[in-house]
Design a protein around this nucleic acid. Structure first.
Lengths: 149, 149
DNA sequence: AAGCTAAATGCAAATCATTTGCAATTAAAA
DNA sequence: TTTTAATTGCAAATGATTTGCATTTAGCTT
């Protein structure tokens, strides 16, 4: 029922993204959808909660969630990261675009930053490290949001 | 026995840095020195290991290390962060200057980057977030170092 | 220099996120 | 439909970090 112009459906995006030789179980499909719908990186626990039924009972095992995330990560379609402001790992689909966040230390709200600037990164490498092959990066800004400060 | 020009001794730096109302116990002093001598952020375990005696027996409790790090952190002289490439928190004295690292995903070696560029950060904040009060930031580059790639 | 007291430590047990072993189930190839 | 390797669920294991509580100690105060 969405009214966006030319939206690539999640189904189609998933079809395109799905890694070779990884079985499409209902657990994995649901987890993929949760990640695809998310507007921010999710923790394993948040995903586990999303998967509960209407009465709040778990429908799948916690270990299944973790194993699925591992599978996605080693298949290269998922990025795992750990924020300065939280103990727990967070997971985000690795799509073409990606975002960084300003994170409020009080309310933990995450505000997406404007830009990613991978271009400059090469220049920041130390001398005689031109050989270093960059595969990823992480940036976070933290402080206090307008409401909390 | 160091031959550097005008080195500020660790003692003096510590004197200047030491937070009000925090007792100088031998445990805390030793931990401060370990952090001051470190050329990279350390995990609690690394610090605990450093504190062992010559026979490899722990001289202080693990919980003391954690509590000391917490104390330093809430006193504002220590920065705690969690690298993408490791599960464990790392700790680093918050001195005037600070560094970011390029981290090899294979050998886990950390290569300090050339610059920090706090200046640009304000511009990356989303619209209507000028009010966000930045207190810190974290940046990491990861990939494969010349040896490992 | 000795006494006092809140703050700090040591120890063992508790927590919490994440991982693992193994038997039962299932996707998808034959 | 059968087959088989891959996947799941469950419960127990792990490993980092935290906590409760009795004991010790830094840094006053006398």
């Amino acid at each position: 029922m969405s009214c966006k112009i030319h939206p690539e459906t999640v189904e189609r995006q998933m079809e395109r993204n799905w890694p070779e030789g990884i079985k499409k179980t209902k657990q994995r499909l649901e987890i993929y959808h949760i990640l695809a719908d998310a507007i921010k990186p999710l923790t394993a626990t948040e995903i586990f909660e999303e998967l509960k039924d209407d009465d709040g009972n778990p429908r799948y095992a916690f270990s299944t969630v973790y194993r699925c995330l591992q599978t996605f990560e080693s298949a290269g379609i998922l990025t795992k990261s750990t924020a300065v402001t939280s103990e727990n790992a967070m997971y985000e689909l690795r799509l073409a675009q990606h975002r960084h966040y300003a994170i409020c230390l009080k309310c933990k709200e995450r505000f997406p930053l404007r830009t990613c600037f991978l271009g400059d990164l090469k220049n920041m490498l130390p001398a005689n490290m031109d050989e270093f092959q960059i595969t990823g990066h992480q940036l976070e800004i933290y402080g206090y949001c307008p409401k909390c400060k």
